[in-house]
Amino acid sequence: MTSSSAKRQRTEDAPIARSEIWHDDGSLVLQAENTQFRVHWGVLSLNSPFFQNLKGLPQPPDQPSIEGCPVVELPDDAADVEYLLKALYIPTFLMQKKLPFPAAAALIRLGRKYDFKDVLNTTVERVTFENPATLEKYDALIVDRGRYGPRSILNYPGILYDMLSLAREHSIMSVLPCAYYRAILYQPTLIFDGTPRGDGTSTVLATIDQRRCVQGREKLIKAQFRVGYTHAWVRDRERLDCIDSEGCDTLRARLLDRFLDTLSLWALCGPTVELDTTVKQLCHSCATYARESMESGRKKIWDELPSFFDLPPWSELTNDL
Rank of each mutant, 00 (worst) to 15 (best):
A104P: 03
V71Q: 05
E136S: 11
F259R: 07
Q9I: 15
Q63C: 14
A287I: 00
L110A: 05
I184K: 02
S174Y: 06
G111M: 04
P102S: 10
L57W: 06
Y114W: 01
R145S: 01
K55G: 01
G200N: 09
W266H: 12
I221E: 06
K137H: 11
T318A: 14
E246M: 08
E73N: 11
R151H: 10
R8I: 10
T277Q: 04
A140C: 08
A105E: 13
L205V: 11
L141T: 06
N53P: 00
E136A: 10
R168C: 05
Y289A: 08
P70V: 11
G200M: 07
G228A: 03
T272V: 02
A106K: 04
R126F: 07
A253Y: 09
R226G: 05
T122Q: 14
L44Q: 11
P60G: 06
A290Q: 00
A232N: 07
Q52N: 11
P132T: 02
F51M: 01
P306R: 03
A79W: 01
K299A: 07
D24G: 02
M95G: 02
S45T: 15
D25W: 10
A267H: 01
P188Y: 07
T122S: 14
K299Y: 01
A206M: 03
P157A: 02
H284F: 09
P58A: 12
E316V: 02
S3C: 13
D144I: 12
G68R: 03
S4A: 13
N319G: 04
R237D: 13
